[in-house]
Amino acid sequence: MASTTKPAAATFDPTGPMLMWTLRITSVIALLAAWEWYGRKPESFTIAPVSEVATAMWDGFASGDFGRALAGTMLTMVVGYVIAAVIGVGVGLWIGVSRYAQNTIEPLVHAGYATPVSLLIPILGIYTGLELRGRIILVVLWCVFEILVNTSTGIKEVPPALIDVGKSFNASKFDLYRKVVLPAARPYIFLGLKIGVGRAIRGAVTAELLLSAANLGRVLLGAQSTFDIPTLLAGIVLTMLLGLVLMRLASLVERRSLAYRTA
């Protein structure tokens, strides 16, 4: 079977990528054309034509507004994410390793994990402050549990056989965690860190919308309340692109560091 399909696949090869790219580009053009057509209809108000959105995007960057907003949002996101990663991996390890932490902290973590953070915003705002600090704390809350739960799961899911290997080869307790448990839990930890990136972006933008408006959130709110639909859509597209790029980056880092699995 395999030997008969292989040559056939080989003859497709030269046209394959071309066909794929043709279709991809065509579908993107079709999508943009449909958007333009729909946006130009007199009765579409909440959808501006793509050309106007592109212009608004250009203006946004040319005036420096978008650049500043993007930088501010990314700053909030990155600081919050790094704090969440440190806490999440640290506490996750602790829970994975210590029975005490499992009994005392884990139930709290699960309760926190299940709570929609946005519900807490009005209350949290009082304690966290409404400016940068509050936004960063929200980003941390938004993604820390995901990282934490994945880390502790990863530790608990380390195959007992690998722990036996470590013990049999006289690994000290420290070496056992450093050289066996932690690397074995890495796929879970990276998964948590990757999902955390997406959640950090959502957290940052949500905090910017719902706490004191700032950065991308302020751009979106301002455009919304003045019916500046092209800028609103440009802001939304920008937020989506930010998410797309950062998630891609996270996947890339994950794939690189876990390359041994599929090597």
């Binding site: 696949a9 794929m20 991809r24 065509t26 079709a30 999508l31 449909a34 009765e43």
Partner: peptide, 28 residues
């Protein structure tokens, strides 16, 4: 394989266009 992937990539775009058209048409 490549062809399949390409079609799969095109499906969401086409679907969106159709939905947009349907919405536009429904207005009348």
């Amino acid at each position: 394989m490549a062809r399949q992937t390409a079609f799969r990539a095109a499906v969401p775009a086409v679907a969106l266009v159709l939905v947009a058209a349907a919405c536009g048409g429904g207005d009348d």
